[in-house]
């Protein structure tokens, strides 16, 4: 899952070298934290959150039984 999100994120941003995806497992599932260069946050979120919403939906469908939360930070 981390790899899937990392692949997508690095192909969305202007500075792929600065992009990271970290996963922290917790009781409910896990939290995926996407970190990108400050100027690239908008690329990962998209207009009206379209892109981040799509990432969350895809993550959910790729592994419906796990509860992955996805967050973005610069």
């Amino acid at each position: 899952m981390d790899e899937l999100v990392a692949f997508i994120v690095t192909h969305l941003v202007e500075h792929p070298e600065a992009a990271r995806v970290e996963r922290v497992a917790d009781a409910k599932g896990s939290t995926l934290t996407i970190s990108v260069a400050p100027g690239d946050v908008g690329q990962v979120i998209g207009r009206q959150g379209r892109v981040i919403k799509a990432i969350r939906t895809l993550v959910h469908h790729a592994d419906p039984r796990a509860h992955h939360r996805v967050q973005v930070r610069a």
Partner: peptide
């Protein structure tokens, strides 16, 4: 999920 894939593919 299909719409999500479509959004991401177009963005990439």
């Amino acid at each position: 999920g299909l719409d999500a894939l479509q959004v991401l593919l177009n963005a990439m």
